[in-house]
Design a protein around this nucleic acid. Structure first.
Lengths: 214, 214
DNA sequence: TAGATTGTTAATCGATTAACAATC
DNA sequence: TAGATTGTTAATCGATTAACAATC
């Protein structure tokens, strides 16, 4: 099913996880049916956009009825590639790396953290909820041996590019990057950034606009 | 200078922190002058977009010369509202809360973490690089007394809305939300979300598209 | 059948890119 | 002055919204 949805815009793709989350909430509240209009009120997108978005992937709804919540939740999960197997390693076992290793929620969608890596001898050998911290020198060997698909970069800025290069060369398919740089890797490797300072600075822009400090 | 730039689109605003970061890198490399064309090559936006973006805020360049890196860096910093004072509290002193408390980089731009809050008695009284962990019961009093502007939510999902309400009622101006929900607060309060699972699920979508797993 | 709501096309809106006159 | 590069307008592109026929 490679590139099944290759012409979908990133704007649509980035809304999918939000649909997924709201549908889960509806299921938990035992709501089994929803119209684009009702969903619009909850999620804040227009009903028109919701119908457009969902129709990129197929006709999940039924005229006169709406959408079956459970079916839609499952379909969007599949479209997102959840429930595949994503062997993952985290590089950098500081607070952030540990925080991510502790997100047990990701496990059930297929993301399994096999190991953390660090260069600090005091960290090596420790365990974060049963996941061992290895010496970063063993990163490439471990990735190859365990067919790791995702590498998470939680290191300081100055080693992040180096780690990204090692991850790429060892064969990961995707990198989840928390370091405040734009890493350079071969184009076939997917990079998803979480740039915390960009998020915080956007907040400060908006704050300084709305709340005058003289 | 309230609402000085009230008609700038969010698309532009979200690019500003990236300009700011690249300009800092240029300064560190002792590059003091740059054209939109050269910056384009570095940052990956088109030269045209760069000129359009910067011109929303004033004519920082000079025909035939380009932009003065230091001047532009400082101007964008000011536009972003950096170097104001942003007294901040972090609610949730788990790994993520601690990780953010340890980001000393934010300090120099005006963000100062005054306290962490947690409900776990084992955490209360601890210190994360000299920042004390308080009982969450004292959150509102602390915010009022210290004129806290930003509240960071690093709690589990199920208490996040409650914390958001408390932060709002106590008078914060902005919320940096790491919990996987869309919190509801009065509209004058600015909310900036970091939804990690949305980021990870976008990565898994792209991975599952490009790398077939059968 | 009548009412509701989707799927889908067309219209609108906004963001990006191209072009070029202004000017350093 | 000639060359370079901005500031800014116009053209294009893409995303969102509106409208409505199809249909459950």
């Amino acid at each position: 099913m490679t590139r099944e949805y290759s012409n979908i815009s990133m704007a649509v793709i980035r809304r999918l996880p939000k649909y997924h989350r709201y549908l889960k909430d509806l299921l938990d509240q035992e709501t089994y049916r929803i119209s684009s209009k009702e969903l619009s009120k909850l999620i804040g997108f227009t009903a028109s956009q919701i119908r457009q978005d969902l129709n990129c992937f197929g006709g999940f709804g039924q005229q006169g009825y709406g959408y079956n919540v459970e079916e839609l939740y499952n379909e969007i999960g599949k479209i997102l590639g959840l429930y595949q197997s994503y062997p993952t390693v985290i590089v950098g076992a500081g607070n952030l790396g540990q925080a991510i290793a502790n997100y047990t929620n990701f496990d059930k969608f297929g993301f399994s953290t096999l190991a953390l890596f660090d260069s600090n001898p005091k960290m090596i050998g420790m365990r974060i909820r049963d996941i061992a911290v290895h010496d970063v020198d063993q990163l490439e060997e471990f990735i190859k041996k365990n067919q790791v698909r995702i590498g998470v970069i939680c290191t300081p800025k100055k080693v992040a590019q180096d780690v990204a290069t090692k991850l790429s060369e060892a064969g990961v398919q995707g990198i989840w990057n928390f370091a405040p740089i734009d890493i350079k890797v071969p184009e076939e490797i997917i990079v998803e950034n979480v740039h915390l300072s960009e998020s915080l600075f956007t907040l400060s822009f908006l704050l300084s606009q709305e709340f005058d400090q003289e």
